[in-house]
């Protein structure tokens, strides 16, 4: 266990040093975006992997964050850091409004409802004047790749740490898992499933909105296709499923692999761009069939089985003495 966290801290340290080593802005941009996708994949997984609710409108929260920032900066003349919390707030509010009616539904209906919601929001952005319609919006430019790299890294690391604490350490994580495993049993033990699922939904949505805000300010141009399109959701889903649902490390690994593949593909095989979505679909189908627990789930499952063979039951003398107590 501790080795895993050491590895995480070491890779975070290595990432901190990246801008001082790599001066090529193209590469820095690729790494910044890879980190963004880690954030999107783990925030999607909070709901999908931990509560079992597949949100096919994840992109809507990203887009809401992006548009909120763009509107506040352009129309109200706010600074980026003033607008940033409101992007998270707007995404959280959307989660509350969408979640209260839909989280009572069974998983499949929730998936359909969130997908429809994201389509509706994209349409709204397309027809409104204030959002620039299909032309999108241009934000005040701030061209400092290093700044955005560190901002993205800091925010995604903070999201990761927050999720890790809440889902793996705090009581909240076990409660969420209880509802995923059996909501009736959870209810009989004093847990209100709808309320806990709503909390998880907000926990998934707010960071996604903040990531949308950073993306908008970084890229300086957003339109309904880029921040509210299907691809945002689809890629996050593929990354999380390929990496391994219900863990934090799995989707992060999935995000890195899929994103690097995509970038390589678009950079060097751009004539075959049309194939990208086909391959993405193939990857998801293949990983559902051959790696139902995802890449990380399969690896850690293998390690667990190996350890379980060595594992002994809690010895009776220890139980009698009560020395196993924490």
């Amino acid at each position: 266990m501790s080795r895993k966290y050491l590895l995480l801290i070491l890779s975070f340290g290595a990432l901190l040093a990246v801008p001082s080593v790599i001066h090529d802005t193209f590469f820095l941009r690729i790494i910044t975006e890879a980190i963004l996708w880690i954030g999107l994949a783990i925030s999607w997984d909070v709901l999908a992997g931990y509560t079992g609710y597949l949100n096919f409108g994840h992109g809507a929260f990203f887009g809401i964050g992006a548009y909120t920032t763009a509107l506040l900066m352009k129309l109200c003349g706010w600074s980026f850091f003033l607008a940033l919390p409101f992007a998270g707030l707007a995404a959280g509010a959307l989660a509350v409004i969408a979640g209260i009616p839909t989280l009572r539904l069974k998983g499949a209906y929730f998936a359909i409802a969130t997908w429809a919601l994201s389509r509706a929001i994209q349409q709204v952005a397309l027809v409104m004047d204030i959002t620039g319609g299909p032309d999108g919006m241009r934000l005040p430019t701030f061209l400092h790749p290093d700044f955005f790299y560190y901002l993205m890294l800091g925010v995604v690391a903070a999201i990761f740490a927050l999720y890790w604490f809440l889902l793996e350490k705090a009581p909240f994580g076990l409660k969420v898992k209880a509802i995923r495993e059996d909501d009736q049993s959870a209810m009989s033990l004093g847990l209100n499933p709808t309320w806990i699922k709503l909390q998880a939904f907000i926990l998934s949505a707010v960071p996604t909105g903040i990531l949308g805000a950073i993306y908008a300010y970084w890229i300086t141009y957003i339109d309904p296709a880029s921040v509210l399109g299907d691809l945002v959701t689809d890629q996050a889903v593929v990354m999380a499923v390929f990496g391994g649902l219900g863990t934090l490390i799995g989707p992060a690994i999935g995000a890195i692999i899929i994103y690097l593949f995509k970038t390589y593909f678009w950079a060097y095989l751009s004539d075959y761009q049309v194939l990208y979505l086909i391959i993405l679909g193939g990857v998801i189908a293949a990983s559902v069939v051959f790696l139902p627990n995802g890449l990380w789930g399969t690896i850690s499952g293998y390690l667990q089985t190996r350890n379980a063979v060595k594992q002994k039951p809690v010895p009776q003398e220890k139980i009698d003495k009560g020395v196993h107590h924490v």
């Binding site: 076990l174 209880a178 495993e181 049993s185 004093g190 847990l191």
Partner: peptide
């Protein structure tokens, strides 16, 4: 019976203890 199948026995009972 409705155990939280994917969790350990201890975790199952911890969840109930939170009340």
């Amino acid at each position: 019976v409705k155990p939280f199948a994917g969790l350990t026995v201890l975790e199952n009972v911890i969840i109930a203890s939170f009340a």
